[in-house]
């Protein structure tokens, strides 16, 4: 095996612990692996941001709004410089196989946060048609494929270019960029690569809830 990032050869270490049960081959070498930063210690209960507060300021603000549509977000990595580089190559250059770098941690994190939600449906955040054409794959779908629960592509995204052709007023009111293909009466877990302000994910959550979905969570690789 060679490291998926730096192409250095990975020499698997054999010890008494893994002699009989060889571990899954690593996709990153030790050095690259150590540059990824998982979220550990205190985090906001609502959005996974690293903070000493139980609920961070942003989430307190969201809770004060009438549209408090997202039950919570959980993320596994911070958005450090190395992660930015990996995401850029994976998502924008289209180096699909880099997805494997996240497989183990992303799956484990899911069991930790959502393991008990056995009937929840996973909904990857869609790309617009143009974006999808450019990249050839949707990174959110690629991540959702790692997870054990059933995944359904219930949302569609209106092209931002088409949206920008609309009047200025309409843009300022920030129309919901998503449409719903089918209603859902089970809990939903939205999946995406990154949670930054939470606005996009809340648009999706709002639409689902307005149409009868009882509870919406989000699971994202990175808390930006």
């Amino acid at each position: 095996m060679h490291c998926l990032w730096c192409d250095e050869e990975i020499i698997p270490s054999v010890n008494w612990g893994n002699l009989l049960l060889p571990s899954r081959p690593a996709s990153l070498c030790e050095k690259c692996e150590s540059e990824l930063e998982q979220i550990e210690g205190d985090r906001c209960r609502k959005c996974s941001r690293k903070t000493a507060e139980v609920v961070c300021r942003d989430c307190q603000w969201w809770e004060s709004q009438k549209r408090n549509v997202l039950a919570g977000n959980y993320s596994v990595y911070t958005y450090n410089a190395f992660m930015r580089e990996i995401i850029a190559k994976w998502k924008y250059r289209g180096d699909y196989i880099l997805r494997n770098v996240f497989a183990e941690v992303f799956t484990e994190g899911y069991y930790q946060a959502f393991g008990k939600k056995k009937d929840a449906i996973i909904i990857p955040i869609p790309l617009s048609e143009n974006r999808l054409k450019e990249r050839g794959f949707n990174q959110a779908e690629a991540l959702a494929a790692f997870l054990p629960n059933q995944s359904k592509s219930l949302l569609a995204r209106i092209d931002s270019e088409k949206q920008s052709k609309k009047s200025r007023k309409q843009r300022i009111t920030r129309k919901n960029p998503f449409t719903l293909k089918e209603t859902l009466n089970k809990p939903a877990i939205l999946v995406d690569d990154i949670y930054t302000t939470g606005t996009t994910i809340r648009h999706a959550a709002e639409l689902l809830k307005q149409n009868g979905c009882p509870e919406v969570y989000s699971y994202t690789l990175i808390r930006g």
Binding site: Y96, I97, L132, G136, E141
Partner: peptide
Amino acid sequence: KRLMAQYPCSI
């Protein structure tokens, strides 16, 4: 081989 990979093309 190791510098060739695959992706599921949505198109």
